[in-house]
Design a protein around this nucleic acid. Structure first.
Length: 599
RNA sequence: GCGCCCGUAGCUCAGCUGGAUAGAGCAACGGAUUUCUAAUCCGUAGGUCAGGGGUUCGAAUCCCUUCGGGCGCACCA
């Protein structure tokens, strides 16, 4: 179904066409103040200017001399909208203020009720194949906070695109073919030879520690570094024994990060793994092709492509190095091979990369190279960036000893803190239920806090803030949901058949102002979805949901539901039901955050 | 040095394809509770949108500039 804003936009466009002969998109936004109505149209102001300038638009003299207010009058005169809005009003410099008819709102509520799976979210017309590259953990290392944002933002992007109707292909471009294996194997050969015999017995914790030690060794001992390099070469040459160890390390790593994905509600599994190793036999061809095209040239011993428009700090052309002077390939080579694979094999219409903003330059260059090589054709390459997670001191989040905060530990801590809150607020619940609530709240809080911040900016990580019951937090949302569910249970106790009342509903009453406000918010879900997906901004979704929960709370405070008079009770039950459905849909389907029936 | 991002209330942040008096939450202050879960609601106070200039009928938003912070810039990913 179409959102109110879409319907209004269509009507306004038609009116403008009739009034001025101009074919321009409608400029409709939410009203800045409730006293101006629900939506406002700003076309008259912009149009008056454009007509006067007479550069982009051709117009008659009479139109050209019109003030914005006069133009607004003319537009309104042609506007047929009384089935949606009350009589439009002109205000200020030439704004057209629009207030929805309660009947229209009620009718929309009915439509959303029957639109069970989408709740007013429209399907896009042309479905695309979209490859989303996100999360990409490093094999043989623990996941840490640095992986959090890519993982959850990427997942949210996939969920929204899927709901919009795209065919989404998730790709975990994990780091599984790099030098860490050489370093690890070289280290184990000297220190823990027995582990190499039984690599399956090695845990991710061991690997993490070994790697740290080995790395330090590399730094102080060139001889050891050299043997590590030799091990990488063996791996890259598909040496059988080395591969066997590698496979075990990969398995140990998967055993570590799959539970984290499950905990976080991330739809990623083995079938989405297309790590660096996946492209290993496609790298030589990348280099050959680029050489053949004359794009790749040798420079200082390395094979490089120099995309147009990039300079080094010495003001020289900046290369994308695709083969080192020792013959080894680099991550840029792998990334280029991945682009080709995704375009040619996966048939991607769009490829979306979700990484932190620091990799911006890398992807700009990469995309340019792919374009220059003629690989891109009609595929759209998109780099979605995000800011860093900072500690309370405003610096990148680290442990006291200066190490990366492990993701698992961070999530465990969130759950632990949530649990103590549950314990405090609701000590009588069964332990198993407390556990369930603490999980939903703790994990939800971490995710929700991330989503509710603007994707592009850094944010300060604070357990206290994200677990607060007030404000735009997961617990607040989950609480609002649980309260609605509680009404249903209470109704049952009182012998009220809420299902039956909902089904038998005849007329929808929206007489109390809080009811109407809530209803108007309910019918804007599709609109919020559209604005969120347009720029891949999850915070638009959380902002919408938060406003919804707030409006519900106001309604809940002002209007009794179960004790309402029989005539209006079904309406109020309907408002409750729809609010619960949308909160649940938003949190679970779009953000991957669990709701709970009571808390 | 060059490039990118950022600077909005005491704090944490929205808002940025230009639109009416710049919004939330926290903290502060005042009110509502025989509760359909107060983990709530209602209200008050708080801002030269870093500074300066420009474009415009109109700028937090666009352009220029200064200051302050972050990040990136050849063989790591």
């Amino acid at each position: 179904m179409k959102s109110a804003i879409q319907l209004i936009s269509e009507r306004i466009s038609q009116a403008i066409q009739k009034a001025t002969g101009q074919n321009v998109p409608a400029i409709i936004t939410g009203a800045t103040d409730p006293k101006f109505g629900d939506y406002q149209c700003n076309n008259a102001l912009a149009l008056a200017k454009q007509l006067k300038a007479n550069t982009t638009l051709r117009s008659s003299d009479s139109l050209r001399s019109m003030s914005p207010r006069q133009l607004a009058e003319k537009i309104i005169a042609e506007l047929k909208i009384d089935d949606i809005c009350q009589k439009p009003e002109i205000a200020g410099a030439g704004f057209i203020n629009l207030r929805l008819n309660p009947e229209f709102v009620a009718e929309n509520l009915r439509e959303i009720v029957s639109d069970k799976d989408r709740l007013g979210i429209e399907k896009i017309k042309k479905s695309q194949t979209v490859v989303v590259d996100f999360s990409g953990p490093n094999i043989a290392k623990q996941m840490h906070v640095g992986h959090l944002r890519s993982t959850i933002i990427g997942d949210c992007i996939c969920r929204t695109l899927e709901l919009a109707g795209d065919k989404v292909i998730r790709q975990s471009h994990r780091g599984d073919w790099g030098k860490q294996f050489g370093v690890l194997i070289a280290y184990l050969q000297i220190t823990h030879k027995e582990k190499l015999q039984k690599p399956g017995s090695v845990s991710i914790n061991d690997l993490d520690q070994y790697y740290k030690d080995a790395q330090a060794w590399c730094d102080r001992d060139p001889g050891f570094a050299e043997s590590a390099r030799r091990e990488v070469v063996k791996l890259h040459n598909n040496d059988k024994d080395t591969l066997r160890v590698w496979e075990e390390f990969v398995r140990a790593s998967r055993k570590h990060y799959q539970p984290i994905y499950d905990t976080l509600g991330i739809n990623l599994n083995e079938s989405n793994e297309r790590g660096e190793s996946f492209y290993r036999d496609k790298l030589a061809d990348v280099v050959t092709d680029l050489k053949k095209q004359g794009l790749a040239v040798e420079s200082e011993g390395a094979v490089c492509v120099f995309p147009e428009g990039f300079k080094t700090k010495d003001d020289e052309p900046m290369p994308v190095i695709i083969q080192k002077s020792d013959g080894a390939y680099l991550y840029a080579t792998t990334d280029l091979a991945a682009i080709r694979y995704r375009i040619n094999e996966l048939k991607a219409d769009r490829i979306i990369y979700v990484t932190d903003a620091r990799q911006k330059l890398h992807f700009e260059m990469l995309f340019k190279v792919a374009e220059m090589a003629g690989w891109v054709k009609n595929t759209e390459l998109i780099h979605i960036t995000f800011g860093s997670v900072l500690g309370e001191d405003g610096k990148p989040l680290k442990t006291r000893s200066g190490e990366n905060v492990k993701l698992k530990e961070l999530l465990d801590e969130a759950v632990k803190r949530a649990k103590s809150v549950v314990q405090e607020k609701n000590p009588d619940l069964a332990d198993s239920e407390k556990e369930k609530i603490a999980n939903a709240v703790g994990i939800g809080a971490v995710k929700y806090a991330d989503y509710s911040n603007n994707r592009t900016s850094d944010y300060i990580f604070s357990f206290d803030k994200m677990l607060a019951m007030d404000g735009n937090t997961a617990p607040y949302m989950q609480y609002a949901y649980a309260r609605i569910k509680s009404i249903g249970r209470k109704g049952q106790e009182k012998g009220i058949d809420t299902e039956k009342e909902l089904k038998g509903i005849k007329e929808i009453y929206l007489e109390n102002n809080t009811e109407l406000e809530l209803a108007k918010q309910l019918i804007r879900y599709g609109e919020a979805f559209n604005s969120a997906i347009a720029d891949f901004k999850p915070n638009f979704l959380t902002a919408y949901l938060y406003e919804l929960a707030q409006k519900f709370s106001s309604f809940y405070n002002a209007c009794p539901v179960l004790d309402a008079e029989p005539k209006i009770r079904p309406s109020r039950l309907l408002l409750c039901d729809l609010t619960a459905k949308i909160i649940r849909h938003g949190l679970e389907n779009l953000l991957g955050i669990k709701t709970i029936e009571r808390m």
